[in-house]
Computed example of a mutant assay.
Amino acid sequence: MPKLEQFEIKKYWQVFSGLKPIENKVNHDQVLPVLYNSKLDSSVLNKIWFLADIDDDDNLDFEEFVICMRLIFDMVNKNISSVPDELPDWLVPGSKVSLIKERKKREQIENADLPPKKEIKVDWYMSPEDLNQYEKIYSSCAKLTDGTLTFNELSTKLSTKFFNISKTDLNKVWSLINPQNLPSIDRDPTFYFIHCLRQRNDLGADIPTTLPNSLAEVCNKKQVSYDLGSSNPGTKRKEIVRKTDNLHDNVPSSNTESNSKNVSTNDNDIKEKYAYLTDDQVANMREQLEGLLNYKKNEKTQRKSNLYKSINISSITDDLDNIEQQVEVLENYLNNKKHELQSLQAEIN
């Protein structure tokens, strides 16, 4: 591993100065953009910060900042495969040698007094305070039209809150609470996803390999089926109603007790509303709307044959027209996205 060079120290000084240190020190929030730009795992960055913060004051002076930056660059450039448990002698500044010795003695004493490490299990009980906190996180996330959240959205949000979890932890917990490997999960599994990761972050709890039986039903929900051939159509109808209630008014609902409300489907408003969606999210939303459209069409056909039932045909027709318009707008939006992608690929080539 190459030693520190003078030009390297000058480069780190420029970065350090740009962070606007106070009394020759920068705190974690000031250094955070530099840490995230490295794209290293949060667990790796936490270990680097601990090694660099030799005086344990949660701040870095310039000498400590140099240590932090050098370890980050060595990891990014693959000069080292992992963060060392201790700083190499050549990286320890002369003014910090005594502090390093004191830290080692302190760690030896602390480790000698510690009892054997016990396995910490995840406690799945969520208190009202926990639920309130998780609700805030859930509300702050960008959801799909059915109210569900993707792995990318959740992992990005939680990585800024839980600094002691790694990408491996995120993947393990996602697989645990999403055994069907669905592209997105709804509110209840989301809460358990956050709850498990929080205990992993705060307590170092081990991630279990299986869910308790009491949670299996919550996390094994199946996708809503629009098949009218089911032996229990009443149950299917209830599932569909619950599903459409979560679409946040993106799909207009029918009203059999009063005249159907006119819903504005201005193309520009819809495009602006869905501007944050990726191609996969648009395709997923389109699939759901088409499924609901087919259901409505089949429902209309079936109810026509049941003459003894009085229904509001105009209400269903209005729903079909509105849904068809939204599907068309989404198709146009998806095509525009594809053209943009092709243009970018052409520019790259």
Results as ranks from 00 to 15, higher is better:
Phe7Asp: 15
Lys11Met: 07
Lys11Leu: 08
Tyr12Trp: 13
Gly18Tyr: 00
Lys20Val: 03
Asn24Cys: 06
Val31Arg: 00
Lys39Asn: 14
Ser42His: 10
Ser42Ile: 05
Asn46His: 05
Trp49Met: 08
Trp49His: 04
Leu51Thr: 05
Asp53Asn: 10
Asp55Arg: 13
Asp57Ser: 05
Asp58Phe: 01
Asp58Asn: 14
Asp61Ser: 11
Asp61Ile: 11
Phe65Ser: 03
Leu71Phe: 08
Phe73Gly: 02
Met75His: 01
Asn77Pro: 00
Lys78Gln: 13
Ser81His: 09
Val83Gly: 06
Val83Pro: 10
Asp85Tyr: 14
Asp89Met: 10
Trp90Met: 08
Val92Met: 11
Val92Pro: 13
Gly94Ala: 12
Lys96Tyr: 12
Leu99Arg: 08
Ile100Asp: 06
Lys101Cys: 02
Arg103Lys: 15
Asn111Pro: 01
Leu114Arg: 15
Lys117Trp: 06
Glu119Met: 09
Glu119Cys: 04
Lys121Ala: 14
Asp123Thr: 12
Glu135His: 09
Tyr138Gln: 03
Lys143Ser: 09
Lys143His: 15
Asp146Cys: 07
Thr148Pro: 02
Thr150Pro: 11
Thr156Gly: 03
Ser166Gly: 10
Asp169Asn: 15
Ser175Glu: 15
Leu176Val: 08
Asn178Trp: 01
Asn181Ala: 12
Pro183Ala: 03
Arg187Ala: 03
Tyr192Lys: 06
Phe193Pro: 04
Cys196Gln: 04
Cys196Asp: 09
Leu203Ser: 11
Ile207Glu: 00
Thr209Asp: 15
Pro212Ala: 05
Pro212Glu: 11
Asn213Trp: 00
Asn213Ser: 14
Leu215Glu: 07
Val218Tyr: 06
Val218Pro: 03
Val218Phe: 05
Asn220Lys: 12
Leu228Pro: 02
Ser230Phe: 04
Ser230Thr: 15
Gly234Trp: 00
Gly234Ala: 10
Glu239Arg: 00
Glu239Trp: 02
Lys243Asp: 15
Asn246Phe: 07
Asp249Ile: 01
Asn250Ala: 02
Val251His: 04
Glu257Met: 08
Asn259Arg: 11
Asn259Met: 09
Ser260Val: 10
Ser260Met: 07
Asn262Pro: 00
Ser264Gln: 08
Lys273Ser: 11
Tyr274Gln: 02
Ala275Tyr: 01
Ala275Phe: 03
Tyr276Met: 10
Thr278Gly: 09
Asp279Cys: 03
Asp280Pro: 00
Gln281His: 03
Gln288Pro: 00
Gln288Asn: 09
Glu290His: 09
Gly291Ala: 04
Leu292Cys: 01
Asn294Val: 01
Tyr295Asp: 06
Lys297Trp: 02
Thr301Gly: 01
Ser305Val: 04
Ser305Lys: 15
Ser305Ala: 11
Tyr308Glu: 15
Tyr308Lys: 12
Ile316Val: 13
Asp319Gln: 15
Ile323Ser: 05
Glu324Met: 01
Gln325Ser: 11
Val329Leu: 13
Leu330Asp: 03
Tyr333Glu: 06
Tyr333Thr: 01
Asn335His: 12
Lys337Gly: 12
His339Tyr: 07
Glu340Gln: 14
Gln345Ile: 07
Ile348Cys: 08
